[in-house]
Write a protein that binds this DNA or RNA. Structure first.
Lengths: 239, 239
DNA sequence: CGGGCTCTTGACCGAATCTTCATCGTGCCC
DNA sequence: GGGCACGATGAAGATTCGGTCAAGAGCCCG
């Protein structure tokens, strides 16, 4: 493992990832001075592993890393963490492929940057409310005919029989059921379930709705639960 | 139909201007993926020159540019082009948004932005306004005699019985019902439902109104719901 | 390292829908 | 009443849209 703990009590935990040890140290020291608890990693795999263990609220991430680069780190991070990501990019850094923002960075700073600027960005970011709530969902269970949805437990039953849903399936169902009868566009669903930074084919929604219908015993033609709103998206049926 | 027209962008030409080469590339890739034809420039003078040559329908323009800034580009652009302008502003430059809009930018996006957001803005500018709103439509249901319209659910009932409308039919009805009794010209209806860039026969409206009347059980001669305003267009009947 | 589960994407098909075109009907003005 | 302009309607072809299937990749677990 390639991470050093450079703790300074009190604040929120921040992971700094940069292969230039000196630079990482400087960044860390400035953040520590501001009262954050800082952990440092120097390569891609180490960053992911460390993030997994220590669950930082924010990750300062150099774009160019040995092992695999910041983009890959960011992508992996996104699969298990809601941490904010602040990308560090060198001025004029050439990248044919997708850079940070496309994989879910929240902000970026161009090198060379002043420490003050960095700190300001970090603070600004932490002040900003995050879309998806970290805590468990305490919304009370909802019932639609024979379908019961319990957001807290993330369980679903039809006619009292439990139905096994995957994470995405459940999330889609949860969004639709949050405003029953209302038509949601695919885009709105994507925004809620996949987050604002996801980018891909809207068609994924269809596939998951398809899976949902199959598991719930629903039928696209005569929908009991999930109504297709042609040209728009989907809606939960109330009955 | 042309193979390039498969995607949503319809092959329209967009100029992306950003001095951060990587970012410009990313933006370009988003747009290309959506089927747009993309040209890139990296500084002010280059942007203006390129715009002159290639006559894009829309320009994605970074506010901060070497040479002269986005505002100046925008100003010059306006002297020979009526392309839409989407400004990119870094966080904290928000004051500048006012300036940007005042010199003729049509919209702006604050960095960092998610790919979906950018594409959505671009499409919103170029395409149909029906695209998608930020959240589900929360306009309360409207009632006209036995006719009830629920914009959120996109459902319509007559005498309590649900009526199946197509997307366009619903949208037309929604527009007319937004200002009951007011006569809308075909042009206004087209503008609202089909978007400003639609080009075709105005009488499409007639066809859809016809379908609406049939489904709603209305009669052109003795209209309960949709009144023909001869020489003008249509209006919603209140009662 | 292998197996299993999930997610994402691409392809394909059938069906719903849109638009155009042509014809017919009707109101309106002189 | 006649002519004309405008609107209504029906049908057809093109196109879009949604559902489903299958393949491939990534991740998690043991």
């Amino acid at each position: 493992m390639n991470a050093d703990m450079v703790s300074a009590g009190g604040g929120q935990r921040i992971l700094v990832v940069d292969d230039e040890v000196a630079l990482a140290g400087v960044v860390a020291s400035y953040l520590i001075r501001e009262g954050f608890e800082v952990i440092v990693a120097h390569d891609g795999p180490g960053a992911v592993a460390t993030a997994r263990e220590s669950d930082p609220v924010l990750v300062v991430l150099d774009l160019m890393l040995p092992g695999f680069d910041g983009i890959e780190v960011c992508r992996q991070l996104r699969t298990f963490s809601d941490a904010y990501v602040l990308m560090l990019t060198a001025k004029g850094e050439e990248l044919d492929k997708v850079i940070g923002l496309s994989v879910g960075a929240d902000d970026y700073v161009v090198k060379p940057f002043g420490p003050r600027e960095l700190v300001a960005r970090v603070k600004a970011m932490l002040r900003r409310p995050r879309a998806d709530p970290a805590g468990p969902d305490d919304t009370p269970p909802r019932r639609f005919g024979s379908l019961e949805i319990d957001p807290a437990a993330r369980t679903v039953t039809v006619d009292g029989r439990p139905v096994e849903l995957t994470r995405t399936e459940f999330d889609v169902l949860a969004v639709l059921s949050s405003r029953p009868r209302s038509a949601f566009t695919r885009s709105q669903i994507l925004e809620q379930v996949w987050g604002p930074n996801w980018f891909g084919d809207e068609h994924v929604v269809d596939v998951h709705v398809g899976a949902l219908r199959r598991k719930l015993g629903d039928d696209a033609a005569a929908s009991k639960f999930l109504r297709t709103v042609r040209g728009v998206g989907y809606a939960m049926v109330t009955r």
